[in-house]
Design a protein around this nucleic acid. Structure first.
Lengths: 364, 364
DNA sequence: CTGAAAGCGCTAACAG
DNA sequence: CTGTTAGCGCTTTCAG
């Protein structure tokens, strides 16, 4: 219990007898109950409620009425056991604290809720151990499918392979792993990196550095590649002193910016692997009274919500988050009734979208 | 399918025979399978795996080994049907797009995951219809408890009453409803409003306005009351022209600020019902070249993540979000094994914490 | 059109 | 120490 809290407890009293009676109320109605009520069999009730053609309208009505009267609700657990389908999709995200993942979840729900599916959520906090635990949970819960984004700390993929082995739909989003041979929805991170860099070039920046992300994570490596190739394609200067290899955090952004400024790279712009990284970088620039975007152009990646509120507003690459969720969900729907889910695998690659704001507008 | 996307499909081929064989692999092992393997009964296997005292260590080992060999995993669905416990908690939040709710979910998981519970998540998007559907889903899924925050558009509470009637633990957080007589974890919004206002007073502001939230939502009303009482206690000016009744959005903040400035209130500070409202208000102030905090002090409510990144940084009231989730989860744990969940109800009221930043520091 | 019976996978008395 | 049996709530052949 937290110190900063107060507790109020209020009590109401029951006579023993009244209590017993009340307990009965708690038990929810089953098919049996309504069968007993009408002196028919459980199977008749089941058929009536499911609008089975071989049931008279008369009994159907009767049954439905008493079902309503008894406040009957189908027990999905029993249904699941019977049918082998849970109508639940496991969604595993690294962190619920990022807008990005929230949006994806939103996109998924938009598609699957109307179809009667629900989400079992699991947060990995970027840890592989949690990831393993999460998948275990999903499998035991008999989820009909899994939509997941790989944690940053994940180094092997056996737990994911297990899902595949069981022929359960696995759809990775954002952070995928090609070697797994599963379905995936990603954005073209290489292109995103390329676009971001090219944007800065077009804005007239001459020496563009990069605060990179963890290089064992494919998408961050891809953004780096895109950056490098864009520079090359436009015959711009490049050398290793223009790149800082960071860890994607705000602090890492600050650290990276400081290092780059202290080095002899003489940058006039920087492409940050994530918006949060850009945020850290901008703090350092402000401290050092380096004007953004005049003296230093900045571009981020992710289109986090804060980007349009900070000053200057942050130019960034949008990842189509809602879309990503929707596509993942649609992929699931497509797969769900197939015999062999992995006979063929499908990859949806969304295109990054540049969101131009103040932090990169040298000319204005 | 979105236009901004590409699809790749790869296919691998199976012989019919190989495929049949493969399908066998997909079926997961049950108690029956391992019983057959060892020529013992299902119940023996069950007991062995559950470390029942009346089982020889020999068979226990045997069973456990073949269980591992067959990659056995307990089927939680069957367990649920048997025991009546699902070990799932339904969590209903208005929106996954707000940091606030993400943090609460985080707090809940922190407590209940180690205890073997999992979260079934539902987003209401602030709509009552979705809320009703969500509760329905939870009840059908046989959740062991429900942790929820009431949607803004909710006007009656019958669906919540149903949960109570079934004697299922219902814990409301943040936005609660006292008349329901259920368990709740909230912060003291009245006090939060009072603190915010008093803070501005102490900073030397003389005429403090309020951009209020939807007044049919208790917590927003409470914040307003706190504001008013603080003014009164300090014998500060107050009249209705100093208050704008808004709808909690960014736009509503802008609209409110404009109205207040156009009126004849002559404010030198404003308490905004939410950080997002404050954001909207600040945009208007910037447009009109009114200096924050010199000419106009601003304070928000919620401690959203962007508050420390905008400029000037935003003074706000923190709601102890992680804590709120943890307390809700702890309450659930406390309740779960009681006979009559609502014989007494418990309310945890967390204390708001002021987060002082630049937007209210007139003197510095 | 309705009933009887089996079974999804698991646990837990009760017998032996 | 192990087996037999019943049953959680539901659907679904198969008979009648």
């Amino acid at each position: 219990m937290n110190k900063n809290s107060t507790i109020f407890v209020t009590t109401k009293f029951f006579s023993k007898k009244l209590f017993q009676f009340a307990m009965l109320q708690f038990k929810k109605a089953t098919l049996k109950d309504i069968a007993k009520e009408l002196n028919i069999t459980v199977s008749a009730v089941s058929k009536a409620l499911n609008n089975h053609p071989a049931m008279s309208d008369g009994t159907k009505d009767m049954v439905k009425q008493t079902a309503a009267k008894l406040n009957y609700q189908q027990n999905k657990i029993a249904l699941s056991l019977k049918t082998g389908k849970s109508h639940i999709i496991g969604v595993m995200i690294p962190s619920a604290e990022k807008l990005f993942f929230g949006s994806v979840v939103h996109g998924i729900e938009k598609i699957i809720n109307p179809l009667g599916y629900n989400l079992l959520l699991f947060q990995t906090n970027e840890s592989m151990d949690y990831e393993i635990k999460g998948i275990d949970t999903f499998l035991q819960a008999n989820v009909d499918g899994i939509i997941a984004s790989i944690a940053k700390e994940t180094t092997h993929y056996e737990h994911y392979a297990e899902i595949k082995k069981r022929n359960i739909p696995l759809i990775l989003f954002d952070r995928a792993e090609e070697s797994l041979g599963v379905h995936a929805v990603t954005i073209d991170d290489y292109k995103g990196g390329y676009m971001a860099t090219e944007h800065l070039i077009k804005k007239g920046y001459k020496k563009i550095g990069h605060i990179a992300g963890l290089q064992h994570v494919q998408i961050f490596k891809d953004r780096y590649r895109g950056y490098k190739d864009a520079l090359e394609a436009h015959k711009m200067a490049f050398n290793e002193s223009m790149v800082y290899y960071g860890k994607n955090s705000i602090e890492s952004g600050s650290e990276g910016m400081s290092q780059l400024l202290n080095g002899n790279a003489e940058l006039d712009a920087v492409f940050c692997v994530e918006d949060f990284t850009a945020l850290g970088a901008m703090q350092v620039l402000k401290e050092r009274k380096i004007k953004i975007p005049k003296q230093m152009g900045v571009i981020g990646f992710a289109n986090e919500s804060f980007g349009k509120y900070i000053s200057p507003t942050l130019t960034t690459i949008d990842q189509q988050t809602i879309n990503m969720g929707e596509e993942a969900a649609k992929l699931f729907i497509k797969l769900i009734d197939k015999d062999d889910i992995y006979k063929s695998t499908e990859s949806v690659v969304l295109q990054p979208i540049i969101v131009e704001r103040e932090s990169s507008s040298r000319k204005s």
